[in-house]
Write a protein that binds this DNA or RNA. Structure first.
Lengths: 209, 209
DNA sequence: TTAACAATGTTAAATTTTTAACACTTTTAC
DNA sequence: GTAAAAGTGTTAAAAATTTAACATTGTTAA
């Protein structure tokens, strides 16, 4: 398998999420159109994505849920696992930790960072909170590869710089301030306001039709 | 102006965010390549988007920040404003409220909902918290158009149904459980785990190159 | 005053992504 | 046992999105 399209990568992760839910319910097989319905896409797209990763289902029975989960794991997970840090233990940071707790074995949030002395030294949902001063040290000691930024907007740029200097390889920026990273560091930015504005826009559009 | 591409809508919102920051700094004009740098895209794309909305800058001086902010507002904002509710006043819900407070005049979070009696009746960052039982009533009374779901995963499906029944026109689902809505309701889903997995994937990819 | 430069605006090409079309195969129904 | 139905897998077409190419025009500098 050569290069998977960007969008396929995103969808594979979503398929797995859906498949894990099916597994919980005791479903052993699933059709492409069932996955499609859950994800609000077409069954063709599902089949095409699965073709790209070389998975082949059973004709007339659909895909084996367990097998497919494993295969997707082989593709998107990193074998040795990846450790993640959260910078900013405010509401959003804590939400992420709770939300994430124990969900993916190959992707673990192992450290939180904050500037608030009341938080430093405590553990939140199993994640120890360190001082931001210790960032470099902890990142190195734990071999943390990915950082999630949930700090106040005004600290965004500085935090990104700190992460880069600490040797982080991927940053997920939940701050409303875009940041810059050098070549070799993967950056993903997400602004909740933008998303909300998009929803509002399409609501407006629908009404004026 | 006919139909703006989906992606252009998203970017317009992002441009505005960047432009507002520039305005704060006292910048009156901005070049396409400056906007591009902030957003990590190309200047061609910026110019193309602005062409689509019919805005024309000053040659050699760039775009007028204020004018462009206003124009983008005319396009994506709804004139009379849109009211938003948050369902689930946990960490994520509260994070969104704080994060959003007073940021956009045309888009206001006017109500929160929860099942926890300790929260109901209180105000959080200026947003009153109601019982989920009152959803329909409050949505109707306030003419709330958009709902943001930040409830625990297990309540996702039921909450979506409630929102639809209450007459909500747009749903932003931050729950990891996909939901379904009827025709006429705009749905946007976002799963933080998927995003994190994507970051992790590209970090892994970069390392194995 | 005129040549070089640096920006915008726009058309055309390239790329990416999605959708359609359809061949193939098992299961089901009679 | 055979036809119809209901799936998968894949190639081809279409649509959406991005990028390139370039014409145009103020501005600057010699």
């Amino acid at each position: 398998m050569k290069h998977l399209p960007h969008k396929t990568i995103e969808r594979l992760s979503q398929y797995r999420r859906a498949l894990l839910l099916c597994l919980e319910k005791g479903k052993t097989h699933i059709y492409s159109h069932e996955i499609a319905k859950i994800q609000h896409i077409t069954s063709v797209q599902v089949r095409r994505d699965l073709m790209l990763i070389g998975y082949t289902g059973t004709l007339r029975k659909g895909y084996n849920v367990k097998e497919l989960i494993d295969l997707i794991g082989n593709i998107i997970d990193s074998e040795e696992g990846i450790k993640v840090a959260i910078i900013g233990m405010g509401n959003l940071g804590r939400a992420l930790i709770n939300y994430f707790a124990g969900k993916r074995s190959k992707l673990r949030i192992v450290a939180g960072f904050d500037t608030n002395p009341d938080k430093i030294g405590n553990t939140m949902s199993g994640v120890p909170c360190y001082s931001i001063e210790q960032l470099k040290e902890v990142v190195a000691a734990e071999d943390i590869k990915v950082g999630i930024m949930t700090v106040p907007a005004d600290y965004a740029v500085d935090t990104a710089d700190l992460l880069v200097k600490a040797g982080i390889k991927g940053i997920l920026n939940y701050t409303p301030k875009p940041v810059n990273v050098p070549e070799g560091v993967y950056l993903e930015e997400y602004d909740m306001i933008t998303t909300l504005e998009k929803v509002a826009f399409y609501v407006k559009l629908q009404e004026t039709d």
